[in-house]
Design a protein around this nucleic acid. Structure first.
Length: 463
RNA sequence: GGCGGUAUCGUCUAGGGGACUAGGACGCGGCCCUCUCAAGGCUGUAACACGGGUUCGAAUCCCGUUACCGCUACCA
């Protein structure tokens, strides 16, 4: 989710200011990224509607340039060869920490005589390339945080090229950003401490600095960084929960960004693009509030064009085996009418789909039966009454409902005592849209048939 | 440990020295509407982390403390 939010902000920023949004897979560390996870990222972005300009760049394809950049720094004095092995460094680190101090590389290889370096290289001694951190302080103006600076003395000479000549993240990123002519870098604020190193690399490589914007993290309900433990953490998980992409985008956009002042929280993508600005970027980490996401989803569910909602519901219905194509076709325009009256009653597309089968067939849930038809004799009486009314009258659900109410009043019964049992007969449930709406969608024949079915069921109960 | 970042209702936030008895949204409670369930309307609950300054005046500026997070790798 954090990655999705970061991508969204980059995308919104690019779209708002008519820039370009570029996607790069940072796979420097072969052990990390798998093909599957990058595919999940692409799919998640597509689902959210975040399209990118230009072809995806794979960092791994640019290793030659990363090396060349390291060589350049070696040549212009911004970097040097270091022959200390990882094991040696480890030992020194441990020793320093045991003494209560912090370890910092002592630059001993920087003091090596040039001929000594040549000799070692000649005999094939393994080495890494280290960046020579200059004196002074390094800072930048962050779009989110304003001025940030670090004393260089707190930064050790860091490795930029490994023993196997593969680049370290910080070098690869800077090298690629320069090559791709990146002007704005928006990323998680866990990168703030990396930034001074990158700033130094830009300078050593003779490149202009991009603008940096460090976005706050997204946390789980417990205030800890979002992880698998928090349940649905991947974009696809929410898709399967029945969350709409536009709701997700809307929700995510408001996590760490605010248009400021009084504003309506439910916004379309276009509205978000129009309002998005760097000023509204917030500094504080925020907690992923599932309840609010669900509310937001309900809002979008109720507002989106019905013709876009329908196919989403159909897909779930078919996939879950809750309905068949002929069944839905038989419903005809009553399908959309059903969706129309149901959409304000649910908060997810899946919940909406679950409601549809009621208009295809009835089934009685035992607990609903005991609740709605608690007294069998009364239930029979009411259902029978309804059956008579429906069959006698001309088909006008509204009028029928009115006459049922009239009957209830005449007999001194609360309206609910009459419509409740009928609702059960019609929908097999204790809750539904209004009786006349339900009858409208079911139609006269189906309504009659369900009333009849309820009569015989209740007769069986009495016996 | 060092360095860096953050700190307003439970949550997301408005606020950028007086307009703040701190506003909105989600959630939660109540009321209205109502055949049920929702939706909708009205309403209640609830916060400036703490301590010092600066100032006539501080949620807003400065300093410190605390808490949380990040970096401190031949991870990204």
């Amino acid at each position: 989710m954090g990655g999705a939010r970061t991508a969204l902000f980059n995308w919104l920023f690019a779209r708002r200011y008519e820039g370009q949004f570029l996607l790069r897979v940072e796979d420097t560390d072969k052990a990390r990224g798998t093909e599957e996870s990058t595919r999940a990222i692409f799919e998640g972005m597509r689902w959210l509607g975040l399209d990118w300009d230009e072809e995806v760049v794979h960092q791994g394809d640019n290793v030659a340039r990363h090396r060349a950049d390291a060589e350049r720094m070696l040549a212009n004095g911004h970097a040097y060869r270091c022959f200390c092995t990882a094991a040696e460094l480890d030992e020194r680190r441990k020793a320093a920490e045991a003494g209560g101090g912090a370890f910092k590389y002592d630059r001993r290889c920087d003091r090596l005589d040039p001929t000594e370096v040549q000799q070692r290289l000649a005999v094939g001694a393994p080495s890494v390339v280290r960046f020579r951190v200059p004196e002074g302080t390094t800072g930048w103006t962050d779009l989110v945080h304003g001025e940030i600076s670090f004393p260089n003395k707190d930064i050790e000479d860091f490795v930029v090229l490994r023993t196997d000549a593969t680049p370290i993240y910080n070098l690869a990123v800077v090298s690629d950003d320069i090559a791709m002519r990146i002007t704005v870098v928006m990323r998680g604020d866990d990168h703030i401490s990396n930034t001074p190193k990158q700033v130094m690399l830009y300078r050593a490589l003779g490149a202009e600095l991009p603008q940096f914007a460090h976005l706050p993290m997204i946390l789980g309900a417990d205030g800890k960084k979002l992880s698998k433990r928090h349940g649905a953490t991947a974009v696809a998980d929410w898709q399967h929960e029945g969350i709409l992409p536009q709701a997700m985008v809307n929700f995510l956009a408001l996590l760490g960004w605010s248009p400021g002042g009084d504003f309506a929280e439910v916004m379309t993508l276009d509205e978000l693009i129009a309002k998005f600005n760097a000023d509204g970027l917030l500094k504080k980490a925020s907690i992923f509030d599932v309840k609010k996401l669900e509310w937001m989803n309900g809002q979008h569910l109720a507002r989106m064009p019905i013709e876009r909602l329908e196919p989403l519901v159909t897909a779930i219905l078919l996939q879950e085996g809750l309905a068949t194509v002929p069944e839905l076709a038989a419903l005809d325009d009553r399908y959309r009418r059903a969706l129309e009256i149901l959409r304000t009653r649910v908060r997810s597309v899946t919940d909406l789909a679950m409601q549809v089968p009621t208009y295809l067939r009835v089934s009685y849930d035992e607990s609903a039966v005991t609740k709605a038809w608690s007294t069998v004799a009364d239930a029979i009486h009411v259902v029978d009454l309804a059956h008579e009314t429906v069959s006698a009258a001309s088909w006008d659900p509204q009028a029928i409902e009115h006459s049922l109410r009239a009957v209830a009043e005449a007999q001194g019964l609360a309206v609910g005592r009459v419509l409740g049992p009928i609702r059960m007969a019609l929908t097999g449930s204790v809750s539904s849209p209004s009786i006349s709406e339900v009858m409208q969608i079911l139609g006269r024949d189906e309504s009659l048939s369900r009333l009849g079915q309820a009569k015989s069921f209740l007769a069986g109960r009495r016996a």
